[in-house]
Amino acid sequence: MQQQTEHSTSLVSLCKSTFKNRQIIYEMTKRDIVSRYKGSVMGLLWSFINPIFMLGVYTLVFSEVFNARWGNAAGNESKAQFAIILFAGLIVHGIFSEILTKAPMLILNNVNYVKKVVFPLETLSVITLCSVAFQTCINVAVLILAFLIYNGFVHWTAIILPVVLLPMFLLSLALSYFISSLGVFIRDLGQFITLLVTVVMFLSPIFYPLSAVPEKFQSIILLNPLTFIIEQARNVLIWGKLPDFTGLMLYSLGSLILLWLGYFWFQKTRKGFADVI
């Protein structure tokens, strides 16, 4: 009965496993976050310092060096507005890229857990997601603080951001299950994923508005799964607009279907992990 439950492929079983192993997920997420800065003088403060430093660099480079402005809003936007808009896009890409780049080595870096029948391997992807979510919260807090400093207010729609980002987390988790499993059998996958997330970054409206893309190429940018989420995140954070709730629902539905397929694949292939490793 335990073996059957362990390899169940339904999303319900994934939810049950996540809830049942919530303490393991919490402890391992905390360990993952703390280990990044272990031995450093400032410790977890680096989680705040890094995004603040990067936002400062973006502000200096794009507002002072390049004198960049976003779209047709050049007339009334502050000098740092371009950097803030850019940072909002990078936050979304950061969720996608960090979860995916960790996925190929996720099982290989935890070999000692693979042969332990009692350890829930399916929680490893959830742990990565929680760790990324922690850093995302800090990045968003830095962005909102910067927006407040430079504009003197914060749009109330910012509270809707978790609803906007949830489909992206679901999609990233789904891909993590696929890639973490394939990474056990295809050792070169990590190199491909690193290349892929770089390509996706430049094919996303991060450094440029969608309106700046020639019409014949816009369909390519719109096919990028990050484009819609980036646009909606900017709507609620930067422009003070409500998101496209219908689009978010459809995106979430598609992400849930992919999550089920990814989890199904992971559960069906996990029995071969020990043999390959």
Results as ranks from 00 to 15, higher is better:
residue 109 N to P: 03
residue 52 I to G: 02
residue 38 K to R: 07
residue 134 F to P: 03
residue 19 F to I: 09
residue 62 F to G: 11
residue 189 L to D: 10
residue 137 C to H: 08
residue 127 I to E: 06
residue 133 A to L: 05
residue 251 Y to K: 11
residue 49 I to C: 01
residue 108 L to Y: 06
residue 48 F to Q: 09
residue 23 Q to H: 10
residue 182 L to Y: 02
residue 199 V to H: 08
residue 1 M to C: 12
residue 122 E to T: 08
residue 173 L to C: 05
residue 58 Y to I: 06
residue 154 V to R: 07
residue 128 T to M: 01
residue 136 T to A: 10
residue 78 S to D: 07
residue 248 L to S: 12
residue 233 A to M: 10
residue 174 A to R: 02
residue 26 Y to L: 09
residue 118 V to T: 12
residue 98 E to T: 14
residue 180 S to R: 01
residue 185 F to W: 03
residue 158 A to E: 05
residue 102 K to C: 07
residue 93 H to M: 05
residue 63 S to F: 07
residue 158 A to T: 06
residue 76 N to P: 06
residue 7 H to N: 07
residue 248 L to Y: 08
residue 160 I to Y: 08
residue 173 L to E: 09
residue 199 V to K: 09
residue 119 F to E: 02
residue 130 C to G: 11
residue 33 I to C: 05
residue 258 L to Q: 01
residue 101 T to D: 13
residue 178 F to I: 13
residue 68 A to N: 07
residue 175 L to C: 04
residue 107 I to F: 10
residue 82 F to E: 11
residue 240 G to K: 06
residue 227 T to A: 13
residue 223 L to V: 04
residue 15 C to D: 07
residue 242 L to Q: 07
residue 250 L to P: 02
residue 259 L to H: 13
residue 8 S to Y: 00
residue 19 F to N: 03
residue 272 G to E: 15
residue 237 L to K: 01
residue 18 T to W: 12
residue 119 F to C: 15
residue 128 T to R: 01
residue 147 F to P: 12
residue 189 L to A: 15
residue 251 Y to A: 12
residue 190 G to T: 07
residue 40 S to L: 00
residue 253 L to E: 15
residue 29 T to R: 01
residue 59 T to E: 03
residue 65 V to K: 04
residue 167 P to K: 01
residue 186 I to V: 10
residue 132 V to L: 09
residue 258 L to E: 08
residue 80 A to T: 02
residue 244 D to N: 12
residue 176 S to Y: 01
residue 4 Q to H: 12
residue 127 I to H: 03
residue 179 I to W: 00
residue 224 N to M: 01
residue 266 F to S: 13
residue 157 T to Q: 09
residue 121 L to E: 09
residue 221 I to T: 04
residue 244 D to R: 07
residue 133 A to Q: 05
residue 228 F to A: 15
residue 228 F to L: 11
residue 95 I to Y: 03
residue 251 Y to L: 04
residue 116 K to A: 05
residue 264 F to H: 15
residue 225 P to G: 02
residue 223 L to D: 12
residue 141 A to C: 08
residue 131 S to C: 14
residue 258 L to T: 06
residue 104 P to Q: 12
residue 195 L to C: 08
